[in-house]
Amino acid sequence: MSKLVLVCDSGSTEKLQTVALVASGAITSDYEVFIFFMHDAVYALKKDAPPEPEITSVFPEVSNKINQARKEGKLVHWKELLEDLKDLGGLRIAACVQITEILGLEKDDLLPFVDDVAGVNTLAEEAMKADQVISI
């Protein structure tokens, strides 16, 4: 089975949404996927994270239309999508241990679909075993 590694180092709504969308394309195409969340993307994984900001684009019309689609439930939220993908199998999710510790968090403080709190050596190992690595 081919393997894809996704690295997400931003907690911005659009980046998180992109990571989940790319993962969904890979999982539904039968690829194995490993997602490594770094920097403020880890904060977005907190169980009690504050409501995330709306998507912002340099083009106001784009922001308005995407945010409207989200409000209307036409776009699957990234958290819901990752939960569903976990259920399908073939997806592992890790949060960067360094940022997790800096934020004073433990694995149990993160969303249930997070499998591991791991270091960048784990990311390097997974990347070397993967067919493709995409940083988002």
């Binding site: 394309g25 539904t28 036409k74 776009l75 699957v76 399908l88």
Partner: peptide, 17 residues
Amino acid sequence: RGSYCPGPLMELIKTIR
């Protein structure tokens, strides 16, 4: 009909499973 990609496919996969 109200969902954008990958909503319809995900709904199908969940239901079939």
